[in-house]
Design a protein around this nucleic acid. Structure first.
Lengths: 140, 140
DNA sequence: GTAATTAATGAAACAATGTTTCAACTAAAG
DNA sequence: CTTTAGTTGAAACATTGTTTCATTAATTAC
């Protein structure tokens, strides 16, 4: 799907920086960090605009933020098929060796029991480990 | 349990700043942020030492870090009863209104299926919502 | 208890991530 | 093509965390 159409469909203004941001994420088959996005956006990149667009586009359901930990944040486009696809509904995997991040779209999040009176809003699940290609697999 | 004994039991040096840090966490019935700890430590507090102690004491199993998101991190003492009690084994709840954080010690983390060849190391589960006392409960 | 050893401390300086204000600008609508 | 409302980028700042290095404190051996 073209960046232009994505933006139109979600009723946010089609600006150059937003198109470039979406394109950057589309060139990758995995979530990207700000740095990785900056490299792909080249001179279309501006830090302040980036952060604002991330906020706008995540609010409108175009992309989602994946907080690996307090120093590693990734960004990924939502699957276009699913209407309301937030970081809430699926699990993320992060490789501690190569940093590769995977959206495990097919893995649903368990409904954890909460104390009485507590209300759930979202549930973030991040699995950290080692991916197939990484021998960080300390047992190997 | 006295801070001194905790440190001795885990075979790390008993220093004033570590004792003050443990005391600070003991005065609270919930995980604390760096700021909340600083207030409780008063002049015993030094940022650099704090971060180093957090690392040392979490490595030795005395406390654990709870990453709510990239801008909110909390610290909590491990339950002394359980020997190897990391953030891995239980779920954390965070109130989006008052910031209160609760270790749901009794709620085990689900075993999520990973793609072939992927190796699990740890799994962080953070539930965000509204606690009993907070009317942020948007339905109310 | 004191000297020697080893680890912890705190200052300075830096790095990464993110936010706010405000004037200039651009996209969409008429 | 003009208006209007939202977006942009510069400057400056806030928070969280790290690194180096000389000083200091805690443990060990005597």
């Amino acid at each position: 799907m073209k960046p232009n159409d994505i933006l139109q469909q979600h009723e946010v203004k089609k600006t150059l920086s937003r198109i470039a941001l979406i394109k950057a994420l589309q060139t990758s088959n995995q979530p990207l960090s700000e740095n990785e996005i900056r490299v792909r956006m080249l001179d279309q990149y501006d830090r302040i605009t980036f952060y604002r667009n991330v906020q706008t586009l995540s609010e409108s359901g175009i992309l989602h933020r994946i907080v690996i930990d307090n120093t590693h944040v990734k960004y990924a486009l939502n699957c276009c098929e699913k209407e309301h696809h937030h970081a809430i509904d699926h699990v993320h995997f992060y490789c501690k060796e190569c940093g590769k991040t995977v959206c495990l779209d097919e893995v649903p999040v368990q409904q954890y029991p909460l104390p009485d009176g507590f209300k759930l809003d979202e549930c973030d699940v991040v699995i950290k480990g080692y991916c197939k290609d990484c021998p960080g697999n300390h047992n190997a």
